[in-house]
Design a protein around this nucleic acid. Sequence first.
RNA 1: GCGAAAGUGGCGGAACUGGCAGACGCGCCGGACUUAGGAUCCGGUAGCCGCAAGGCUAUGGGGGUUCAAGUCCCCCCUUUCGCACCA
Length: 863
Amino acid sequence: MREYNPQSLDRKWQKRWMETDAFEVTEDPSKPKFYCLEMFAYPSGHAHVGHVRNYMIGDVMARQKRMRGFNVLHPFGWDAFGLPAENAAIKQGVHPEKSTLANIAHMKGQLQRLGISYAWNREIATCLPEYYKWNQWLFIRMFERGLAYRKRSTVNWCPSCQTVLANEQVVEGGCWRCGTVVGSRNLEQWFLRITRYAQELLDATDRLTGWPEKVLTMQRNWIGRSEGTRVTFPLLAPGASAPPAGLRPDDAPDIEVFTTRIDTIYGATFVLLAPEHEWIERIADESVAPEAFRQHVQRFRAQDRTARLTGQIEKEGFFTGRYAVNPFTGRAVPLWVANFVLGEYGTGAVMAVPAHDQRDFEFARKYSLPVDVVIQPEGEGGGRPPLAAEMMTEAYEDPGRVVNSGEFSGLWSTDAIAAMADTAEARGVGARTVQYRLKDWGISRQRYWGTPIPMIYCGHCGVVPVPDDQLPVVLPTVSEFTGRGDSPLAQVPEWVNVTCPTCGGAARRETDTMDTFVDSSWYFYRYCDPRNDSRPFAPSAVNYWCPVDFYSGGVEHAILHLIYSRFFCRVFRDLGMVGHDEPFTRLLTQGMVLKDGSAMSKSKGNVVDPDDMVGRYGADALRLYVMFVAPPENEIEWSDAGLEGSARFLARVWRLVDQWCGALEGRNAPAPGGLSLTEAEQALRRVTHDTIRRVTHDLDPRVHLNTVVSALMEMVNELYAFSEAHTHTGAPSRRPMGEAAPVEERLETLSVLKEAVEALVLMLSPFTPHTAEELWEMLGHQGGLTAAAWPSYDPVVARSSEIVVPVQVNGKLRSRLTVPLDIVEDELRELALADAAVRVHTSGRTVHKVIVAKGKLVNVVVK
RNA sequence: GCGAAAGUGGCGGAACUGGCAGACGCGCCGGACUUAGGAUCCGGUAGCCGCAAGGCUAUGGGGGUUCAAGUCCCCCCUUUCGCACCA
């Protein structure tokens, strides 16, 4: 009897895999490819089991695909730039590069001790110049195509991280990383024009059939397409409160509003401007009290974002003293500034229809502005009195019948929208437009630990990209980290001051760095050709491996990373470098691992370190437990007891194989046809083949990893029962230590067992590779599991020749019949009716109908 | 408020296109082997009634479709997640 010592097996096989480059791959057009990817890791220091769950899921998929004959690319790397390393530098004085590389080394060891089958030769780290050089290269290509541009704008500012945040990085008004309430600043920033692809990104979500619906919904909402009309409200001159008949003051600007409900425009009794509206300054100047006006605006701007996140912020506004003309009614309507109107959406101005928009309604009531009903609900079966402005307590926002709207009165809302948009276009006072919530992506960060933006500012030539042959712009070594909020790179004059590449005059470098989400938007392409030093990657390599076939990671990246990557994919496509539209074919969002009811974190002190568990039970028990406890998408609650259960199961498998491997040596699997098998032998064969069938399907299209494990557990239970019946001394454990098992010698028994045990070990191997390798070797196989093929099943063998058919009477189970698989329907019906238990429930009643569901059940309907 | 997903034993979860609800594991109970066992093996374990055979009730609640519903349809409740003044 051999002792099961998982830790020593871990070491033995990890060493073997390393020495033989077992998981390294090259492009091989003769084999089908499979690109299996887990989201790369932020090198925070130590991986906990919540992190590594994802890698285990990917590893099961990768290993299984390899055995099924695929050429599998399964790489790993490090999302190594970012704030935490820099913040640590500010606090502890350790240079970010040093701490990052040390963290990478530690975490890599953790993953290797779990036996994750990565192609480590392809490892990348985004903080290395050989990687970020290509961020810079791509940025310049985008600049050349108008996809990267610079503008001054109000941006989200995290006062704690001291940097700009993209819209996507503001979560409920707080910083996505530290939670601090986000403020705003007005800065010159670099933007990537993701909005150019807004429509395409939206349309393509329908074709992402391998993605969770939840993620697609989030992305669609984020892109936020809405169709409407832009309508012009001419602004009257200061002091004017009625349109001068047929006359427009030439110098007065027009107020453009965006509306999705042009059908309500006859009810637009005032117009609201955002505090950020482009003409606020001018209107303030022209007002009777410019100072008071500006103070109001300032107050609203300060409220913006900060007060808003706490929920309902009080709707406030003030009258500008000016009027604009409603182009449909021809009447002058007052122009107000309101704190709830967003400067960054639509035109920054809205027509207010208090009768049919709740916000406008509240605003109108507060300031006693007129409410005009122009939509009447269609009464269902009557009696409901029509809406009357003075009786309303809230806005009526649903569609309805248009009233008091001139020639459009009587139309249904949806028809009115079309008719009124046509009219607006014909009269030149409006145009149909599409608005998106998606904004261009601001990528400038006033921080050190990131990719320098490869731009140079020259007094003569303006903004000039760094020439390709001078890339990478290497991040200079900075020794002092203050966290002051100005770009640390600005402190390095010898780096900042350069000569202009165009005119040779004195110039300065851009001192901001890129958002780290740039790094992660294309890293999956770099793995395909990770050491290329002349291009980001060779298109041929990417076009062999990509798109990624299976991608797994946390839902927290449902918007940010996944939408940016889809954007970058299209940029590379339009550069002619990749031949696909979508980077990730199948996406799995894995659930978190909770401990004591909450997500693991250092601050809560509830982290489970995989190394501790590996030390106690070995890598395989941990892997098996995490895969078994719940479907990969679910959250799981960490349980030491569950882990012990998995360890027990592996020991059970070990004892089984250990008992039989000697006797099985040199046996052959049963020949097709199986001839003279006993009933028990046939039953075991059926279990073997049926388990292979179930496991194979649950693994591949379905990715139900927990049921794969339970199927294997059932098989082991069957094997124990079989084994017990075929040994002279009974269960393996009853045997005295060190004594050889006296086993059955019947040839057929051994063949059937061999087939079963080998299939078991093979199917277990993606989950518990170390144990499986050892068992495979004990079964007499050379060359390891990397050379072994996934077991195949014979559907005929997997089916039993006899089936058990439940028989119901009036839908209640009353009996079971064991019948031949190929029994004809009539015969089955007769057998069911003749069954004693059935007759008890049918006697004295008339059989109304007998339903025979082929191969499934019989239902006798009686009255 | 809008959108999405989900509610199944003490617990995690099975049940692929409507067809035996509760697979598998954890926990618990009992037995075997043992000086001992927290090792191992075997058995039991949704609830209620019954000595038993068996019967009845059960998949958040209420209706419906169907021979048959955890699964499909309608209404309600709860939970989780996402978006949140987007005009």
